[in-house]
Simulated assay, not measured.
Amino acid sequence: MTLPSDPVANLAALIRCPSVTPADGGALDALQAMLAPLGAVCEQVAFAEKGTPEVNNLYARLGTGRPHLMFAGHTDVVPPGDESAWRHPPFAARIDGGEMFGRGAVDMKGGIACFLAALARYVERNGPPPGSVSFLITGDEEGPAVNGTVKLLEWAAARGERWDAAIVGEPTCRETLGDTLKIGRRGSLSGTLTVIGRQGHVAYPHLADNPVRGLLTLAEALLSVPFDAGTDDFPPTNLEITSIDVGNPAVNVIPARAVASFNLRFNELWSVESLKAEIGRRLERASREARLRPGHAAPIAFEVEWRDRPSPVFLTRDRQLVGTLSASVAAVTGRRPELSTTGGTSDARFIKDYCPVVELGLVGQTMHMVDERVPLAALEALTRIYLRFLEDWFA
């Protein structure tokens, strides 16, 4: 039986499945078919929650012993957008100029294809690993991330699954393959600030309270003073105002309220709770010291609503995992990767509660773009990195 040792063929099979989140598009069936010749035990599990779409997920395990290595990723992809703008159809997996084009080529069907090929080559060379390798693959990473990795981990752990380390195959590299290894992620916290005023006619401002004035004052209180200077492992905590809205179509009406959305990306100097407290202190102080309009005695009235499911900060310090994977990158590329915690969130934020986790994948420059593509040479190189890691880690 032919093993799936060619990352190019593996990726082509996955790209041809139009798995735009939350649709599966046959991607998990295709992956399960490729895992079958390795002797992996596979199970697809669907999860649902009120207000969110049902999502299919795949858990596969090769071996029964320890140590147990998890590879995690997702087969769902973002929409291709205007397909006529693509050089090649987004789900055709066409090869042009030494590159494969297709939605998910980089983010992150390419990473899955390479790790699968690396495991197949390991088995060809060495037989089954002296431990276990599992695949934890979701169809919900690009969506709300409610019915995917977080529930699949809970499901697997309830069945007695335990892991010693995990690799997430997200496209972590910036410019060249292997230049970046993610060993943690900043936390993410989002909220909505509402300033409450009094609606009125713009010609009679003394009869109204314009909430836009108060919103600008409170926003300045959030933005003007740095939260920290960063740490050895993380950049400074940062807050961004992402939208401001008054819902007012008229130019001669002072609105009744003004709303701003904001997001913080924070380092290990903060927790979700301590950040919420700091935001509250800044807003309370500014609301007392300023007014919606000079001469008005009342403090600025405001409300803060926090979004569900904030992401905590985490940092992986497991020397065996980080050191072995860094050495594998160096052995294949000739340079050691930069250990980084930058970028957005990923499903590693769920996995870190179960075992040490790092992220290493392809160069992410074309992810989510028209003409998303990956050089065939990069697929081969990443496969060799993963293979070297498997051999050294299990050794």
Rank of each mutant, 00 (worst) to 15 (best):
G102D: 01
F262M: 10
A297H: 09
R186F: 00
N10T: 08
R291H: 13
M100E: 05
L382A: 02
T345K: 00
V77Y: 05
A46E: 15
L223G: 01
A250W: 15
S287N: 13
A33S: 12
M1Y: 06
I385C: 06
A36G: 01
S132I: 12
R388N: 12
D308T: 13
G184S: 10
G143Q: 04
V357W: 03
E54A: 15
H88M: 12
T237L: 00
S326H: 07
S326F: 07
T231I: 11
S311D: 04
A113G: 10
I95M: 10
P89Q: 08
G143L: 02
L153G: 09
G127A: 11
V77S: 11
P356A: 05
V133L: 07
V332K: 11
L177V: 01
P299G: 13
T194H: 04
D6R: 06
R319G: 11
E49F: 14
G323E: 12
P312D: 07
V150G: 15
K50M: 14
V322H: 07
P130F: 03
V45S: 01
S340D: 15
A258V: 13
G323R: 08
S134C: 08
N126F: 04
V77H: 05
S84Y: 13
V332R: 11
P89V: 04
E240W: 02
L362E: 13
F314Y: 14
H206P: 01
G295E: 09
A256I: 12
V150T: 15
P356F: 00
A27V: 02
G148S: 05
N147G: 08
A23G: 02
D371Y: 06
S132C: 12
L223I: 01
V246E: 15
A158Y: 15
M100W: 04
T75Q: 00
T2V: 13
N263E: 11
L315Y: 00
E338C: 03
A156M: 05
D371Q: 14
E278M: 03
I196F: 08
A221V: 14
G39Y: 11
R307T: 02
V168Y: 12
S287A: 15
G230F: 04
G26A: 05
V225F: 07
A60F: 06
F262I: 06
L116Y: 06
E161Y: 07
E220A: 04
S132F: 11
S190G: 11
G160K: 14
S271Q: 00
K109M: 10
T342I: 08
T341V: 10
T345L: 01
A260L: 03
E240D: 07
P299H: 15
G184C: 10
